[in-house]
Design a protein around this nucleic acid. Sequence first.
DNA 1: ATAATAAACGTAAATAATACATTTATTGTT
DNA 2: AACAATAAATGTATTATTTACGTTTATTAT
Lengths: 234, 234
Amino acid sequence: MTYNSKDLYQVKEKMYVATDCIIFGFHEGKLKLLVFKRRVEPLKGEWSLIGSFVRLDEDLEYAGQRVLRETTGLENVFMQQLKSYGKKDRDPGYRCISIAQYALIRIDDYDEELVEQHGAHWYEIDHLPLLILDHNEMVHDALLQLKQNARYKPIGFELLPEKFTIPQLQALYEAIYQRELDARNFRKKVLSLNVLEKLDEKDKSTSKRGAFLYKFNYENYQKLLKSGYNFEIA
Amino acid sequence: MTYNSKDLYQVKEKMYVATDCIIFGFHEGKLKLLVFKRRVEPLKGEWSLIGSFVRLDEDLEYAGQRVLRETTGLENVFMQQLKSYGKKDRDPGYRCISIAQYALIRIDDYDEELVEQHGAHWYEIDHLPLLILDHNEMVHDALLQLKQNARYKPIGFELLPEKFTIPQLQALYEAIYQRELDARNFRKKVLSLNVLEKLDEKDKSTSKRGAFLYKFNYENYQKLLKSGYNFEIA
DNA sequence: ATAATAAACGTAAATAATACATTTATTGTT
DNA sequence: AACAATAAATGTATTATTTACGTTTATTAT
């Protein structure tokens, strides 16, 4: 959390702009966060969010996507700006403003090996290690925003595979809200929104009977939005 | 909106960080925005949000407060971060990332003269002029966020004088949501939240009977939040 | 054929949101 | 002193939404 040798400190005569990525994933009923172990000084060996300076010739959004690509191999990930962190002493080494962006990824999609090669690790959201600088604060803020957004936008779907069952969707919302939901009411509510398309397939990995798979229908969602409806789950 | 002479263009070899302020006020039943006419090149004479580069030795939040102080004379204004704007070509002159912050001010408090001296002007929110760069986009985003926030947080109160009547509060919400609300239901709802303190004074400026003045009770609001209640008006 | 299991379904009660009409306090006018 | 005018203040019935809760069903393994 702090630099422990003074010689790392340098005179702050230049403004740096960085972006840090808060990467959420959902796996086995748990909401997880991707963090990585710094391999360079300063703060080598400590846990940190994945970030980078924003280059002069790239859009801010692009910088986030680049960081993700470089660290996970994933392209075109759902990503959204969270907030800028700009306390003058937030980084003892540089005068650096960091724009945090959070990403939701389909954890089944990606290559676990690849991520581990980059020194990254998935932590359960309620068992995070101490992160450098203000990164724990960033995660806290991101989780808050995820909760809020999940209430009104269907971003939860970004965390699930394309085909998913209703019990899976419920587990995701339970993980995000960190409370249990009633299965009957949840199903009723989510189906009443008319944005789920029932498929002819079942997922039988969790029960003998099997649960029908659904996929998200963006068109209907757009209609729903235009009709002024609040997409509010749970 | 565009630079019209090429010699203004300079090589982008440095990253600048600016902050732009979206300043909302409420006056005579209308939601208003404070904009000002640029007095320096480039884009001299065009309407613009009020902004500044963030200095190396100041917090980002402080930069916003400084800008407000310099342009309106107001201190300790309610201000909240909106979003960072970071397209690589958003400013044709510099490679500049701007962190937009929006402010809510009690329009009766401040000195109209002072503001006018700074070349600023209050525009009604739905009759804005064309602003430079991506400033209209910023305003659009800020208004959206104001609408959302006003639904769950009592930030609306920041726009009113300390003492206000319920009809005034309703007019404010109508201006923010840009739709009419039912007076009986509004009153019922807002009073049921138990965050308004009725005073023994009346405001008689708009009717012979006069309307009772209220003030906002932050303590009760805190309790309300802790009890998990949604502060949802209208 | 049976046991076991998660998935799927429905209804009643409680709560919240909406729609809508009348009375009241006060002032200025006659 | 009575009256007209005006916005403020109040209540109730209807509808929609949310919550609480128990039973049946499809499938597989034994």
